[in-house]
């Protein structure tokens, strides 16, 4: 009887201690990524201005698939994939897929020059404060999020894209 009580007591104490340790470990290991976007979850909403000063709010694109690309003019793979994105944008913009290209906070001049050079027609918005990059947990560029018409993150790609891949992704988020 007493032995049973002792075992129960020991189990409870050890469980409490273990729970505390696991919580601490979990909280510590996820402290940098706690709020960042994850596949399957709702894409964090944001509001950014494009070069003309128009506001783009992600949630306004509900009902459309959103190909959310983070880029910078200094990033070489970004340059490679931009023309592919432009090509596919022409194919899919009438099928309900939108591209939003989030620049990592450069000058309007640099972005304009770049957009002119590659003849980009999709909206380019600028994340001057880095808040959106933080919310999406962006570190290396380029990074691409596929967002479904109901606002969920379908996939996250952290590499340079080929035109075939982009086409594939567009198919996946087509409404």
């Amino acid at each position: 009887m007493k032995k049973k009580r002792r075992l129960a007591l020991r189990t409870i104490i050890l469980t409490v201690l273990l729970a505390a340790i696991f919580y601490t470990l979990y909280a510590n290991l996820t402290k940098d990524t706690r709020k960042t976007a994850a596949v399957g979850e709702e894409a964090p909403d944001f509001v950014l201005k494009d070069l003309e000063g128009n506001e783009h709010r992600l949630s306004d694109y509900r009902g459309k698939g959103v190909f959310l690309n983070f880029w910078g003019t200094w990033c070489k793979p970004c340059k490679t994939e931009m023309p592919y994105m432009e090509n596919q944008y022409q194919q899919y913009k009438d099928q309900g897929v939108e591209i939003i290209a989030v620049n990592a906070g450069e000058t309007n001049l640099a972005i304009e020059t770049f957009a002119k050079q590659y003849q980009l027609s999709f909206p380019i918005v600028v994340d001057h404060t880095g808040e959106v990059q933080k919310a999406y947990g962006i570190y290396p560029l380029p990074a691409t999020f596929l967002i479904s018409p109901d606002g969920k993150i379908v996939d996250y790609i952290e590499q340079s894209l080929t035109e075939d891949m982009i086409k594939n992704y567009m198919e996946r988020i087509k409404p």
């Binding site: 964090p44 909403d45 918005v125 404060t129 933080k134």
Partner: peptide
């Protein structure tokens, strides 16, 4: 003190 806002806003 700021009113509530979205990232980037």
């Amino acid at each position: 003190k700021a009113e509530e806002s979205l990232p980037g806003e």
